[in-house]
Write a protein that binds this DNA or RNA. Sequence first.
RNA 1: CGGAGCGUAGCGCAGCCUGGUAGCGCGUUUGGUUCGGGACCAAAAGGUCGAGGGUUCAAAUCCCUCCGCUCCGACCA
Length: 566
Amino acid sequence: MRWTQSLIATLRDAPQDAEIDSHKLMIRSGLIRKLAGGLYTFMPLGLRVLHKIEAIVRQEMDAAGALEILMPALQPAELWERSGRYETMGPGMFRLKDRKDARMVMGPTHEEVATDLVTKELASYRQLPCTIYQIQTKFRDEIRPRFGLMRAKEFIMKDAYSFDISSEAADASYQKMYDAYRRIFKRCGLDARPVEADTGDIGGKFSHEFMVLADSGEDGILCCPACGYAANQEKAERRTVKLEPADSPAIEIVDTPNAGTIAQISAFLKAKPKQFIKTLIYLADAKPIAALVPGDRDLNEHKLKRLLNVRTLELAPDETVEQVTRAAIGFAGPVELDIPIYADASLEGAVDRIAGANQTDRHMLHIELARDAKVTQYADLVNVLARDACPHCGQPLEMKRGIEVGHVFKLGTKYTQAFQTTCLTETGEAATLVMGCYGIGITRTLQAVIEQSHDKDGIIWPASIAPYSVAILLLDPADAASSQAASQIENALAEAGIDAIVDDREERPGVKFKDADLIGFPIRIVVGAKSLAKGGAEIKVRTVKDSSLVPVEQVPAAVADLLAHV
RNA sequence: CGGAGCGUAGCGCAGCCUGGUAGCGCGUUUGGUUCGGGACCAAAAGGUCGAGGGUUCAAAUCCCUCCGCUCCGACCA
C-alpha cells in the first residue's frame, strides 16, 4: 500500500476536546475522526486495527466452540418487556417507533434476542452445550460519552451467549469463555486481569470483569498483593471486625448550628469523622429507606441495591429527606426514624456515636445503635478502600484504576425463565436452560491497547494488531533506484504474508520519521539513496533506538525474524 | 440532571475586560531554494466569529434565550 493513496492525515496538535493520551493519539495519528459526541468514524488505518482485533476474537471464539451468528440491531420493544428490562434499562436505551407506530429499540445488548432465538431453535439436550456469538454495533444513550471510544454512544461489541442443561455444564461453558478471553487479550498485547465484579442490570449471580490497568480507567480495583484477590470496588467485600461490647451514656442533644456536613460537624464538635453515623435517605423502588454508614466511609450503592433487591435506587430528593426526618438537610439520624434502616456491618454493636437529631441544627451524642434505633438489617454497605483488610487473607489491599474491556457473567435462569427456554433432558423432562453471557468491547479494547502502550512519540502497536506491521520509508521517491528497492521490499514482504505501507510522500525525512513513530508501526524500514549507498535498507524496531543495515534482498527474512519477537 | 468550563479558518490559539478594517502558528495550493528526526522564502485560497434576539450610529466584543462540546458525579463493553 502507498501512503499517498491511503487517506492518512496526521495532526501535529490534538483537538482540545481530547483528554487522555490514547484519545489524543488516535486523533493525531488519523485512526478515527469525530462526527459528534460519542460518535466516531474509523479511518482506513483505524479500521485495519479493528479488523485485526476482530480476527483474533473470531479465532479464539471459534476455537472455544462458539458459533458466529448475526442478530438484528433493531429490535421489537416487546422482547424487552418480557425480560422486564424495557423498564429497568431506563433512558439508557435508544427507543423509536416504526411507521406503523410499533415500538422498537436499538439494541444495547442481546440477551433477549439470543434467548428468544434459542427458545425457538433448541429442543433437546443433545444440541447442548450451545454458545453463540456475534460482533456487532451496539447503541447506548450514554449519560456522558467520554474519552473517545472508551464510552461511546455507538460501539462495536463481541457478545456471546451460552446455554446449558445444568448449572454444572454452564460453569464449564463459563470457564471456556473465561479462558478464551485471557488468550484474546494476551494476543492483543494487553495486560488484562480478571477481577470479581458486580452484575448490575444484566443480572445473574457471578461475574468477572477483564481490566486493563490504567490511571485513566473509570473503575477502582482492589487487589491483594498477598493472595491475588482482585475485585471491582463496586463488588469488593469488606472484612469487618466485631466491636467490643461497651456501655454508652444516655443520649444528649446538642446545638450544631449550620453544621450539616460531616466535615463541618466534626470540626465543630472536635470529633473524628469515624465517630459519626452518616444517615443517608434513599428511594428504593420509590419508597424511602435509610442507610447508615460510618462518617469516614462512602456508601456503596451497588451493595445496597443488591441487598434490597430492588429495580431502582436513588438518593432521595431534598423534600423527601426533610419530610422523613422532619428537619433540614444534613441533620438526619437513626433515632426515632420511621422508615426501614439498613446499617453497615461495621456499625453492629456501635456505642457512643454521633448523628443528626432529626431536628434542624441539632445533633445527638452517645448513640448506642442497638439501644436507640430500630435497625432492620446489618450488611456490608460501604466501599472498600486501599489498606483495608483483604476479605480472603486479611492482608492490606491496594487500589488501582482499570479499564473494563471484557465482562463474563453467569446469568443462571433470569432470561431463560422469562422466555421459558427449555430443552428435554435424557429422562424426557423439560429443563430450563442455564445461561451465561460474555462481552468484549472491541472498540474499547483498541483504545485500551493504545492507553497501555505508547510513549512521548506516539503509539507502540503490538505486531498482532498494528495497522501495518511494517512501514517502508522511501526517503527519495524521485530516485529510481530507491523507489525500485522500496517496491521490491514491499512485494517480497507481501509474498511472505507481511503487510507493509510505503511512505512515498514528497516530504522531508524528519516528517516521515515523526509520522512513523506517531502511528507506531512495529517495524520501520528506511530506504533512500544514502542507505543504498551504504549497502541496503535500515531496519528499526519501534521500541529500539538503533537500526541495522541489511541488504535489500535479505530484508524480508530479517523482518520476519523480528516480527516473531515483537 | 447537578456542579465547572469552552465554542473565532481543517487543527492549535490571540482578539472580548475598555464596541470601530477579523488576526497568528500549523496544515492546504502554486513557484523557488533545501533535503537523514516535524526546513526556508514568496504568493494564494480558506471565516454565517455556535444559533437567534436585544442594546447601539456601529457588536466577535455588552445583555437575554437557545444549541453544541469538554471536565467532575450517577450509567457501562
